[in-house]
């Protein structure tokens, strides 16, 4: 059985933020919320690396473990989703998540913390497939259309991969073998002969 996973190849990520934009546009994510972010380490140094981070759909998800109302569930594909009608916006999942994936929209006149929002692996939520309710609450359901998350599908360098964990790891393993321990062909060595 397939278990859907993301993998970001830091040797290939060029910090273009196209994945962030694609996610916001595809899922009509509200202002102030980013389901996906690009994190850069050692910015401007030779050892600079970037990775694209969102919900990693953990097998033993800490958010699911700490939720006081148990609004999380895992689909047959291994995607961690939640029911927004049950969510009370307490923020426990935010403290538990090692990736900072849960986000909270500002709701009401005083900007109180609203229901939790996070990456759905473009799998919608517990509403009828392609319904208005599903689109409004959770975003597009691309998995039901036979497509994979748009962030990965439109990654120009194929740094961000999304799909069955076995297939993704096989592809990544082949890349690592091909590199023989070196970085990809572009980089500081190529540009500056340093």
């Amino acid at each position: 059985m397939a278990r859907m996973k993301f993998l970001c190849d830091s040797e290939r990520c060029i910090e273009c933020n196209a994945c962030v934009t694609a996610c916001k546009n595809e899922n009509e994510v509200p202002w102030g919320i980013n389901r996906r972010r690009v994190v850069t380490l050692d910015d401007g140094l030779q050892s600079e690396k970037s990775i694209s981070v969102a919900c990693m759909h953990c097998t033993d998800a800490p958010c699911q473990a700490v939720c006081p109302v148990d609004c999380f569930y895992t689909t047959d594909d291994g995607v961690v989703l939640h029911d927004k009608d049950m969510c009370i916006g307490c923020g426990y999942c935010f403290y538990a998540c090692p990736f900072g994936a849960p986000q909270y929209s500002q709701e009401g006149a005083f900007g109180a913390r609203g229901k939790m929002d996070k990456c759905t692996f473009c799998a919608g939520g517990p509403e009828e497939d392609h319904s208005h309710e599903e689109l409004d609450k959770y975003g597009r359901n691309r998995l039901a259309e036979g497509k994979l998350p748009l962030c990965a599908e439109m990654c120009s360098t194929k740094s961000l991969l999304a799909g069955d964990g076995d297939i993704v790891s096989e592809l990544f393993r082949n890349r690592v073998v091909r590199r023989e321990g070196r970085g990809e062909s572009w980089g500081w060595e190529t540009a500056y002969n340093d």
Binding site: D70, F72, Y73, D76, L81, D83, P126, D129, A144
Partner: peptide, 13 residues
């Protein structure tokens, strides 16, 4: 125990 809405899928896994 998850007691939210059931997530229907149009295809089998």
């Amino acid at each position: 125990e998850y007691k939210g809405k059931f997530d229907p899928h149009s295809q089998t896994k």
